[in-house]
C-alpha cells in the first residue's frame, strides 16, 4: 500500500547503510491492546508520552485493518466499518510506506501483533516478522517465568532480537 504519493520526495532519511540499523521502532501488542514490547533503535522525534504513543499505534492498526477489510473488492462478506474482526480473518494488510518510513505489520491468529518501523527502502519484511514471532515464541511464550499478557522483560529475547534486526536490510 502506498500512501501520500508514490515517489520518495524530500525530506527523506539517509539511505540505509549496508551494516547499519534500518529498523527504527518495534511494537508488540497482544489482542487486548496491551503493549507487550516496545523498542526503539532510532527515533529522534518524541512528542507523545509512551502510553499515548502505544494507544495511537494500536488505534491506527485497528482502524487500518477494518478499513482495508472494508475496501477488499474480492470478498462480498464484510462486517461494518469499526466492527472488530477476528485476527487472521478476511483480508489483512502487511505494510505501508510513506516517504520517510515503512511500517510492517503481522498478526498471529492468537492476536499477537508485531509492528516494525523501518527505513522506507527496506524490502518485504513478512518473513522477518514471522521470524520475530518465532523468537517471541521461543524466548517469551515458552519461558515459564513469563506471565502471559504482561510486558516482556526477557534478556534473551532482547539480545536475539537486536542481533536479528541488525541483519535486516
Amino acid at each position: 500500500m502506498q500512501f501520500f504519493g508514490g515517489s520518495d520526495v524530500s525530506p527523506s532519511p539517509p539511505a540505509p547503510t549496508a551494516a547499519g540499523h534500518n529498523a527504527n521502532v518495534m511494537y508488540m501488542f497482544n489482542r487486548n491492546g496491551v503493549c507487550l514490547f516496545y523498542r526503539e533503535w532510532n527515533r529522534p522525534l518524541r512528542t507523545l508520552n509512551p502510553q499515548q504513543d502505544h494507544k495511537l499505534m494500536f488505534g491506527l492498526l485497528f482502524s487500518l485493518k477494518s478499513l482495508t477489510a472494508k475496501m477488499d473488492p474480492t470478498s462480498g462478506d464484510k462486517g461494518n466499518l469499526g466492527v472488530p474482526q477476528l485476527p487472521g480473518q478476511g483480508c489483512s494488510f502487511h505494510s505501508f510506506r510513506t516517504n520517510t518510513y515503512k511500517l510492517s505489520f503481522m498478526e498471529s491468529p492468537s492476536g499477537i501483533k508485531i509492528i516494525l518501523v523501518t527505513h522506507p527502502r527496506t524490502g518485504d519484511l513478512r518473513e522477518a516478522l514471522k521470524y520475530i514471532y518465532s523468537l517471541y515464541v521461543e524466548y517469551v511464550a515458552k519461558n515459564p517465568l513469563y506471565n502471559p499478557g504482561t510486558p516482556v522483560r526477557c534478556d534473551l529475547f532482547d539480545t536475539n532480537l537486536d542481533q536479528y534486526v541488525r541483519s535486516i536490510s
Binding site: P109, V137, A141, K142
Partner: peptide, 16 residues
Amino acid sequence: GVRLIEDYLAKTATAR
C-alpha cells in the same frame, strides 16, 4: 495451552 498455541502457530503458520 495459552502458551502452546503460540508454538503451534509459529510452527505450522496456519491461517485461521
